[in-house]
Nucleic acid binder design. Structure first.
Lengths: 335, 335
DNA sequence: TTGTAAGCGTTATCAT
DNA sequence: ATGATAACGCTTACAA
């Protein structure tokens, strides 16, 4: 039905082997022959059959991206960074949502990845996740984004430092009663979260400040969660004068909670996040920006290197991308 | 190297044909045989080779999703709806970003789709886009999301009605000087945009109101664009008392512009959007909600039906999903 | 119900 | 530089 490599070969008066070589740009092909083959292929509107090529070569030309969420800002932004690289490389991008913990009943990613991708990119999957382990045991080039794991390539920011920067910014403004809105430390031994908490704690301790347990609340990395967390913090007798939220979206929710209590962010209470979410500027939120698109871009590039170097030649590399404090109106000197 | 169907066949003492049938759940297989084959396959940790299967069967088991943006809210939300369906159906999701118009230099999607997917989902590609036409000419099951085109399946909302609802809401509040922030009517003959404009215009006319050209501004469907558009509207001598923004994100920007001018949304000027973006509740924005996740879900389901019915048996279906006015604090009776 | 065997469209090895 | 040809691992008539 469709045009095959043999049609091209016959039309060009060469063997299929030559067509294959010519079209793939392999060496040892007379340039005149190559040109003729290319012309005929184009004229015949020939496109290679990926299935046949994959079966014969053993390479799939595609990489799998596993992510717990698709529509959340961080994840979709990473994904677009990944896509930009893979597109340029001519690689197919297989998108696969996975369940972290209790989420919902979904097939585990490992079996769905086997024999259909040349490499895997995992976005923000906790390093001790069982499903992630299964994926890693597949033994193919893999690169983590937003988390780090011994022996596996990965791209992250320095989460400890980011949290330190945020906390220090509040300290510099004279705040001492500084609250923190985290995700859910108990359930999710999520690298980023732990590191950010550590950065907060250490910075507080370095400043000689004790951390009041009443200054801590969970926001589950969502807007609604941040709102609840802030509400909780506000109900205590001894309110914080400033709050560090581990993500901008939680900070958004926190700002809403403040307003609901008649408080103005940056005036009555200072709040800082991490991310530099698309809407953070709009909401005038001070934040520690992280290069989310680049997280995906760099990870994809590193993965391609790993794949092309034929497994092993290039050891798994780790990259730490820089963050930057962006001061806006939501933080101000203590009253 | 890897385990093949023959290994399973030998271990089970049957032919590869039987293994193939048994594992795919085809009829005419003794249940005892099937059970044995399944057990052995599992025990051997056998997974089928997609490339081989695709080559032999002609089906790819994957569908391509083409979208101009990955990280924007609307697109990533649609995408997650699509993913949920495809995951359940065991279909691979090939993600492909495309350029609308001037965007950037990217390979056209059609050649990248040929022979590698069984169907295509196109998110918000203008119906007269040349690249879309090439894709449609591929002749495979295709379903559009957010746009409509003669003879092609699709899922949309009633954009005219949504705009009518928004405009009428403002009229009901007593506003007569109602501005509109659109995308960029001249360049992008984008169904949704045209329809929304029509809904606005007709509703204004039905109310006996003339549309002052000074009440119209372009926001390019971005936050920054909405901000600029609103700023433009505010510089005129005769300001609108209410504004209809064709998307929530443009409305966000508009709200910011208002504040920059010392105006309070819902007090000094009313503003309404379309979408019910994740953050619209947070920003207290009145909007006409559209079921974005479902747009993706329904389109994917329809596409699967189209694919399974073997091309032609089921004609391309169109679905129009409902919208709903959600009144929040950004709209109020005219002063 | 099960087996046989001919493809499916490439790639890659080995000659030439 | 080019050609023959054996894989690659499955699916699917067609037989039995």
């Amino acid at each position: 039905m469709a045009i095959t490599i043999r049609d091209v070969a016959e039309a060009a008066g060469v063997s299929t082997a030559t067509v294959s070589r010519a079209l793939r740009g392999l060496p040892n092909v007379d340039e005149a022959t190559r040109a003729r083959v290319q012309a005929i292929a184009q004229q015949l509107d020939y496109v290679i059959s990926p299935s046949a090529s994959r079966l014969a070569s053993g390479r799939t030309g595609s990489i799998g991206v596993i992510t717990p969420y698709i529509s959340r800002w961080f994840f979709s932004t990473v994904l677009s960074g990944v896509e930009s690289v893979l597109h340029n490389a001519g690689m197919d991008l297989l998108l696969m949502s996975v369940s972290t913990a209790d989420f919902q009943h979904r097939l585990p990613p490992a079996p769905r990845l086997r024999r259909r991708v040349d490499g895997v990119l995992a976005i923000a999957i906790p390093p001790d996740d069982a499903q992630l382990d299964e994926v890693i045991e597949l033994g193919m080039p893999t690169s983590l984004i937003g988390t780090a794991k011994q022996g596996v390539a990965g791209v992250t920011i320095d989460d400890v430092q980011a949290a330190r920067t945020a906390t220090q910014h509040l300290l510099n403004l004279g705040h001492t009663r500084i609250g923190v809105i985290s995700g859910h430390l108990i359930d999710a031994p999520f690298t980023a979260e732990h590191d950010r908490y550590r950065g907060y704690r250490e910075t507080m301790e370095d400043a000689g400040l004790e951390i009041d347990p009443l200054l801590e609340a969970f926001g589950y990395f969502t807007v609604a969660g941040g709102e609840q967390a802030m509400t909780a913090l506000l109900t205590h007798r001894n309110r914080p004068t400033a709050v560090f939220a581990m993500s901008d979206e939680m900070a958004f929710g926190a700002m809403r909670a403040m307003r609901a209590h008649g408080l103005t962010p940056g005036k009555d209470i200072s709040i800082i996040g991490i991310d530099n979410h698309d809407l953070s500027e709009l909401l005038d939120l001070t934040t520690v920006a992280q290069p989310v698109f680049d997280l995906g871009r760099v990870a994809a590039e590193a993965l391609l290197v790993q794949i092309r170097s034929g497994n092993g030649a290039v050891g798994p590399d780790s990259f730490v991308l820089p963050t930057q404090l962006i001061v806006r109106g939501s933080t101000a000197p203590v009253a």
